[in-house]
Nucleic acid binder design. Structure first.
Lengths: 244, 244
DNA sequence: TTTATTTTGCGTTAATTATACGCAAATGTA
DNA sequence: TACATTTGCGTATAATTAACGCAAAATAAA
């Protein structure tokens, strides 16, 4: 019995010196619908009473890459068809961001075409829901902070890379694109100058179809030509949308 | 004895399920001297024969924030006086980036005024050395990849935030600043337009001093006025240096 | 002492890009 | 038929960028 106790003590000594930090991934999923920017949140339960909305995410498995972990976690909770995903930032400066253990979170942000998305039926009685970006409730851990950083990044990226298209359906109206930029960047733009600029890049394709909306002059549907965009990038092209 | 064995077996079972991922930080320290961009590397020893140059870094301690870990690791190896530090990216998609264990690395990059820097005397017979950015040897782990990403980020950031000053002495010549931009961005700029643009921002202060260089017309020394810059940022100012 | 050489510092002009609008075309609706 | 609405194209002006000229202030060479 003394021996067992001795072994355990040595074990504890070793454990104390070992790194005891967990690593998680969290994802912001952005969607654009009804002329507004939304983020996907899940309801998380701690114990019996405490309920919190949180970003989808969880611990990374030993044999899985970070981005695979994000994909897996998202798939467990939703049926999202991501059109874009990128690492955002790693949150590990606040040692007590998770009150239970030291957890470092590698945050990602992703875009989806929200108009064409099914949220998975409740499993485990967990709820998944879109929240308008300016109506986000207090979230678990430091997830409000993560989300804030994600929105900043999205705004910045929108101005120098054509990721706006990843929030829209395959075929979209010019007015949709324009609204998306105005709404997310919270700025006014001149409709005509915006159109001129985007068209001048030559990265859009006209389709033969027209919008099904029955008000005003019928509008052509456009498609983003990613191939063409990549070609241009090779030649040194630089996408940029700026406003006054 | 059977009991001890039993306990150990249970212990092993538990361990297998636990997350067994280590977390490290690595730092790129950029310096600018002799009209060239340099990075600080340390010599790392594996066993007896294998020697590799590597980015300074190491495992994060249980009770220390990520950025503190970087500061500590850098302090253990050098006497660098950082003028800028920022998180770069977290490398954890290649599960075998460290062949011994699964290690995720949160990479940072930092800037120093290399003209005014002491590298610490060899401790542990470890060497620390500046390497010109286009003469980097094969590095340990995926550190070449990290460095590549760091250079990309530095180049990008240089064009939209005034971090070039963090690579120069407190007081510098316009030609130094110009050279720094040309060298790092690998582009030619018109000296006169560059000067005009930077001066138009009103973020530089003239000093009464002149350069000690004894060739050509004596040049004024300038200082970056960070206070003024922050004021301007508040008013919506946006720093930008672009070239053809 | 004069002349060349080098680097700084300030300007001017032309080309390009951004901004602010005007307005007709194509639909549905009153 | 007149009106409201939204699209699609155009034009004038302002602002910015790019390209270049040249004198001033020092040292080095003739």
């Amino acid at each position: 019995m003394a021996l067992i106790r001795y072994i355990c003590l040595i074990g504890l000594r070793i454990m104390e010196k070992l790194q005891n930090i967990r690593i998680a991934v969290d994802a912001i999923v952005f969607g654009y619908k009804n002329n507004g920017l939304y983020a996907l949140l899940i309801e998380q339960k701690f114990g019996s009473a405490d309920k919190y909305w949180a970003l989808p995410g969880g611990l990374v498995q030993n044999d899985e890459s970070l981005s695979d972990a994000v994909i897996r976690e998202l798939h467990e909770e939703t049926n999202v068809q991501l059109t874009f995903m990128e690492q955002l930032y790693t949150f590990g400066d606040d040692i007590h961001r998770d009150s239970r253990n030291r957890v470092i979170s590698v945050a990602y942000y992703a875009l989806v075409d929200a108009s064409n998305l099914e949220i998975k039926a409740d499993t485990d009685a967990e709820r998944v829901q879109w929240f308008k970006i300016d109506e986000i409730p207090p979230l678990a851990f430091d997830h409000n902070l993560i989300l804030k950083k994600g929105i900043e990044r999205l705004k910045a990226k929108l101005t120098y890379e054509p990721i706006g298209f990843d929030l829209l359906p395959e075929e979209f109206l010019f007015s949709d694109l324009e609204n998306l930029y105005c709404t997310i960047l919270e700025k006014e733009i001149d409709r005509r100058n915006f159109r001129k600029k985007i068209l001048s890049y030559g990265i859009l394709e006209e389709t033969e179809k027209f919008s099904p909306i029955k008000t005003g002059r019928p509008a052509k549907l456009f498609k983003f030509n990613k191939l063409k965009y990549n070609e241009l990038i090779q030649k040194g092209f630089h996408f940029e949308i700026k406003f006054a």
